[in-house]
């Protein structure tokens, strides 16, 4: 259960204070697949960074299973990111000089998995998302965009997180590949009962999720399928 109350985030920029999020409140049930839509600059990424404890809100609360993550120490926030959250980025953000396998093993290391268990577990995760054994030993630059995003999903799943936060995961992919990635995420939320919150521009995709939130100028405007 994820519960956001009166969340506000403002940034101090040279041109004055920017309110990226204003009084956002929402609840997401465990295992739900939720999409967030909105124009560029509407605060979607800012909302995800608050939910993922990448940044602290100016005011408001974020409760994940009764823990207010906005009030955690920075060391606890890091641990929360490592064990409870999986990130999937638009630019995949794999570590360029590590192989696909090593990228997943890195997340396992941060999640506290014993070093001798990491390799087998990473191999299983990668084959589950459709990355074959020979591809697992390649560096990201030798994988296609779709394959890289599969690797990044495997990395996000590595520590069996409670929530996966995906910021425009299909944004850099052609529609067919994007569709497959979306289906991969969708199946996961079903089989692993993982809460998935995905930002998307693709209304087609948004339409297939359990719920869709719409942001405009930092404010939640529309709750669909609630």
């Amino acid at each position: 259960m994820l519960s956001v109350k009166n969340l506000t985030k403002s940034f101090n920029s040279p041109s004055g204070t920017v309110k990226a999020l204003e009084d956002v409140s929402l609840d997401v049930d465990t295992g739900q697949f939720v999409s967030i839509i909105g124009k560029s600059g509407s605060g979607k990424s800012t909302l995800l960074s608050m939910l993922g404890a990448l940044d602290t809100p100016t005011s408001g609360n974020i409760h994940v299973d009764d823990v207010d993550i906005a009030k955690l120490s920075s060391a606890k926030q890091t641990a929360y990111r490592a064990r409870k959250i999986g990130f999937v980025f638009q630019q995949y953000n794999l570590i360029p000089n590590l192989t696909a396998l090593e990228n997943v093993m890195l997340a396992l290391e941060f999640g506290g998995v014993k070093s001798r268990e990491r390799k087998a577990r990473a191999e299983k995760l990668l084959s589950d998302v459709g990355i074959k054994a020979d591809q697992q030993l390649r560096k990201p630059s030798r994988l296609s965009g779709g394959q890289q995003q599969r690797v990044s999903i495997a990395r996000a799943l590595a520590n069996r997180p409670a929530i996966i936060l995906a910021d425009e995961p299909t944004g850099n992919l052609d529609s067919e590949t994007g569709q497959k990635i979306f289906e991969l995420l969708h199946n996961l939320s079903r089989s692993e009962n993982t809460t998935i919150i995905a930002v998307t521009h693709d209304l087609d995709i948004a339409g297939k999720t359990d719920r869709t939130f719409s942001l405009k100028d930092g404010k939640l405007t529309k709750l669909s399928k609630s």
Binding site: T78, I95, A107, F110
Partner: peptide
């Protein structure tokens, strides 16, 4: 810079 941000985002500590 970005790579360091990613490592931190996926749970790597600054010390690491």
């Amino acid at each position: 810079r970005r790579e360091i941000g990613v490592i931190k985002a996926i749970g790597g500590t600054s010390q690491k």
